[in-house]
Design a protein around this nucleic acid. Structure first.
Lengths: 319, 319
DNA sequence: TTGAAAGCGCTAACAA
DNA sequence: TTGTTAGCGCTTTCAA
């Protein structure tokens, strides 16, 4: 009766008696016992498959958590430290506790080996993908993000744009760079004439690469960075060299990192990586009754224009 | 037998047979059923009691998770969004699922109202405290952190140190400021003669306050910041004003924020807030058989000296 | 409309 | 040393 089983009949009097007892005794059903009986624990396993447990995981978990709460589920969290062995092990732990479903998330978007055990329950890949797409995957549309942020700079009038990339081996790096080149070509420019320097997503690589860049003559009018941390490093390097942002050089970040991109001065123009939304989406895909969309779902990353970008000085002088 | 119950006897032959069956059938005990039977689910509830789910929560969870795995426990995670009502509600959810113990964590160190339900299982407060200390609390030793970072600047020879604080209403802000003043007095200086400006822990407040500060004449030889984000803001403001760090001004951060303090240029001297260690400690306190240390446990925050601090120019010139 | 009973998968206690 | 049984708290089915 407490579960409102359909097609049940109960007298009003008894209902009152039951309800009163419930409040009097402060009765709360034991969900472990419920789970045992119904084979459903209202618990979703969240596997963070990475060495670090940082900004991304936190944001994605926040989103997933929100959706879960709405569905009456709770998140059982594990962190694999990036090890496949540990991943398989922990997924075992999750399944032993009868998790109803799994979210398998990576920080650096990449290809992962999904342990077989994960296929025993509904699973969604978050910010990663596996060979042959055995389960749905949710990914940011990095090519588009790279393209549209470059386009934003082109629209401002920039024609000499340098790109300080993140770690070249990463999927996201390649995708963003592809978008960068697509946009340049779309504007009738030759990508080969634009400087591309390889970094590693750390702030200091932004700093170092800017210094390398400034040895060139003349410097580009705009600089795209692999992420916001690199952009902050670039900002520091440019300022130190006596250049003003955005008056002398425009800087574009990526990620819209929480408590960084918007707070730095000048506030960074960047591309928003919607981690909370992706986490939410993952949890919603797992809700019972929702048809899972197979294959890869690309999530749009909108460009956010703030104060680190402006028309290039040449154009401005002319106007 | 699989649980290695003590004082049991079993023939070698049967043991082999059982073990073989286990591997053959790939048998895994259902831990939900186990939990029902033993009244122990090997699950610890982690309550993040804050609006945001960022750096701190991630680091603390990472530490707690590590310790949990070692103990064979898993973390059941909830985020209250900072609402007491939601906290009570979610703790109910956790207890309904028979969580064995709770870690109740806040991001901004502060006083919290612990829902009564939490007292029904072993609970540890992480980075927060409650009136009358009903359960053990683990807190960073902010006074000491403030004192020792100030002392580090004094040791370098600085005698004119400004403090750009975090949000004045916060416990941590007051504690660090107290440490700052203690250190000054300890060096025979008068705290009233040192500029203290109130910020809010956001990077832009570091930037804004530095600009205010630079209207003074002469500027201080060293600047303490409420946290690393403010320090980054300060760095940007100083550079923009044509001042060099640390040649002209030393800058001290706080937090040793992951992927920020060490990566920025110059790398920030700062105070390490050992969140992962605190999370680990919390989980270990909850391990069965460990005597819980009542009251508040203050965790030391060591000063980390990097490149944003140096002896003041005057001293250097003299030497 | 209500009550009784079986059983989810496991463990602990007891008999054989 | 091994096998059997009761029961954790719940839901579902069936009988009254």
């Amino acid at each position: 009766m407490l579960n409102q089983t359909v097609g049940q009949t109960i007298s009003d009097e008894t209902r009152q008696r039951v309800l009163q007892a419930v409040t009097e005794l402060d009765y709360r059903p034991n969900r472990a016992a419920q789970g045992l009986r119904q084979g459903r624990t209202a618990t979703i396993g969240f596997v963070s498959h990475d060495a670090d447990f940082g900004e991304f995981a936190a944001s994605a978990i926040k989103g997933a958590h929100e959706a879960c709460i709405r569905q009456g589920n709770l998140l059982l969290l594990v962190n694999t430290g990036g090890s496949n062995r540990q991943a398989a092990h922990l997924i075992g732990d999750l399944l032993d506790r009868q998790a109803d479903a799994l979210i398998f998330a990576a920080v650096g978007t990449r290809s992962v080996v999904l342990p077989d055990a994960a296929l025993r329950v509904p699973t969604v890949l978050l910010n990663c993908f596996a060979a042959n797409d055995p389960v749905p995957a949710i990914l940011p549309d990095e090519v588009r993000g790279g393209r549209e942020s470059t386009q934003a700079l082109l629209d401002l009038g920039h024609r000499d744009i340098a790109y300080l990339t993140g770690k070249p081996s990463q999927w996201a790096t390649k995708a963003r760079l592809r978008g960068f080149r697509e946009a340049l070509r779309g504007a009738g420019l030759n990508p080969a004439e634009h400087t591309v320097l390889s970094g590693n997503y750390h702030a200091d690589s932004g700093y170092d690469l800017v210094r390398t860049l400034l040895q060139r003559n003349p410097p580009p009018t705009a600089i795209m960075c692999g992420n916001d941390r690199m952009a902050v490093g670039a900002l520091l390097g440019l300022l130190e060299a006596g250049l003003r942002v955005p008056e002398d050089v425009s800087v574009m970040g990526y990620d819209d990192q929480f408590q960084l991109a918007a707070e730095v001065r000048p506030a960074l123009s960047t591309v928003l990586l919607p981690y909370p939304g992706m986490g939410r989406l993952a949890a919603e895909q797992l809700a019972i009754g929702v048809p899972t969309s197979p294959g890869r779902t690309l999530v749009h990353c909108p460009v956010v224009m703030r104060d680190s970008t402006a028309p290039p000085a040449r154009t401005r002088a002319r106007s």
